[in-house]
Simulated scan of single mutants.
Amino acid sequence: MAITAAMVKELREKTGAGMMDCKKALIEVDGDMNKAIDLLREKGLAKAAKKAGRVAAEGLVDICMTEDGKKASIVEVNSETDFVAKNDKFIQFVKDIATTALASNKSTVEELLNEKYLDTETTVQEVLNSKIATIGENMNIRRFEIFEVENGKIAGYIHGAGKIGVLVAIETDSDSEEVFTLGKDIAMQVAAMNPKYISRDDVDQDYIAHETEILKQQALNEGKPAEIVEKMVVGRLNKQLKEVCLLDQSFVKNPDLTVEKLIKETADKLGTEIKISKVVRFEVGEGIEKKEENFAEEVAKQLK
């Protein structure tokens, strides 16, 4: 039987499932609408779609690394509630996604969703839909990144039982365990202090111009003379850059050292160069607007 666009549209309206999933279901059951609805429900696709509008702002971050420490992945998987995020099956699912991402070499979530889940013939998307149907909450794989170095090590750190995750790529010729220890310390630094940039060289000029203008207006509003405002702005901007640039930050374990000095001391000790080439920090739910629930209002609405 020929599957028309109208049939796909009707099935989408009845189930809320995706267009391609609806088309595949109709083809599989030879155009029988009721059987297609049942098939989508059996696969958890219809149920998953109905939950897709809910805000998933909780969840976990996890990392996965190769044994040689040359390659690693970091992923964020979201759920609606922290209760689900603490579920052992959800925790294992996030670990499996990190493992799948590391092996995939994909760069987008859409590509990752079409990858085979671990060593199975099932796609990541199909497993995700199954988890949604079983657990009864909306979930999504929000983002991931893959790091790889030729010479050096990748260090990772998970904070707060998976609420914050960090990867740090270190370029160096040394294979010393001290390099990995340094990377771990820097990853903890990034988790705690959340720098925007690695060094001042990475700071984009738009950021500098924007902050300079704000600081200038602040100084003028404070009634400072125009002739000294420029010098004040330079001083305040330098102070701000020390906060947002990783290498300029005071080391959390020893405030007498900057991160840059810590790296130099380790490099001098090992007799080699050490460079932080890449850093990524994922914090669960950052940037997601969470819906504020008011239970009393919800009950009142139901009673009207």
Rank of each mutant, 00 (worst) to 15 (best):
K86E: 12
K86G: 07
N87A: 11
N87Q: 08
D88M: 05
K89I: 15
K89R: 15
F90V: 13
F90R: 11
Q92F: 02
Q92G: 07
Q92T: 15
V94T: 15
V94E: 11
K95V: 02
D96Y: 04
I97S: 03
T99Q: 14
T99H: 12
A101L: 06
A101S: 12
S104Y: 08
S104H: 10
S104R: 10
N105W: 02
T108A: 00
T108Q: 04
V109P: 12
V109E: 05
E110L: 03
E110S: 13
E111K: 11
L112C: 11
E115K: 09
K116R: 12
K116F: 05
L118V: 11
T120A: 05
T120N: 11
E121C: 00
T122C: 02
T123C: 03
Q125V: 03
S130Y: 01
K131D: 01
T134Q: 15
T134V: 13
I135D: 01
I135Q: 02
E137R: 10
E137P: 09
N138S: 12
N138W: 09
N138P: 11
M139A: 09
M139L: 14
M139F: 11
N140S: 14
I141A: 02
R142Y: 08
R143I: 03
F144L: 09
E145N: 14
I146E: 09
I146V: 15
E148F: 01
V149H: 07
V149K: 09
V149M: 08
V149W: 06
N151V: 01
G152N: 05
G152Q: 05
G152W: 03
K153A: 11
I154P: 11
I154S: 11
G156M: 06
G156T: 07
I158V: 15
I158H: 08
H159C: 11
A161G: 10
A161C: 08
K163N: 13
G165Y: 05
V168P: 06
A169H: 02
I170E: 00
I170H: 00
E171C: 02
E171I: 09
D173G: 13
S174V: 05
D175P: 13
S176K: 02
S176I: 04
E177V: 12
E178R: 10
V179P: 06
L182A: 01
K184E: 13
D185W: 00
D185I: 08
D185H: 12
D185A: 13
D185S: 14
D185E: 14
D185Q: 15
I186G: 00
A187P: 10
A187T: 08
M188Y: 04
Q189G: 06
A192Y: 09
A192W: 09
M193A: 15
N194L: 01
N194M: 05
N194K: 15
P195S: 03
K196R: 13
Y197W: 12
Y197N: 08
I198E: 01
I198N: 02
I198P: 02
I198F: 03
S199H: 03
D201R: 02
V203C: 07
Q205N: 14
D206E: 15
Y207D: 06
I208G: 09
I208W: 09
A209C: 00
A209W: 01
H210M: 14
E211Q: 14
E211V: 13
T212L: 00
T212V: 06
E213V: 03
I214H: 04
L215Y: 07
K216G: 04
K216E: 13
Q218I: 10
Q218V: 12
L220H: 07
E222G: 07
K224Q: 10
P225D: 08
E227Y: 13
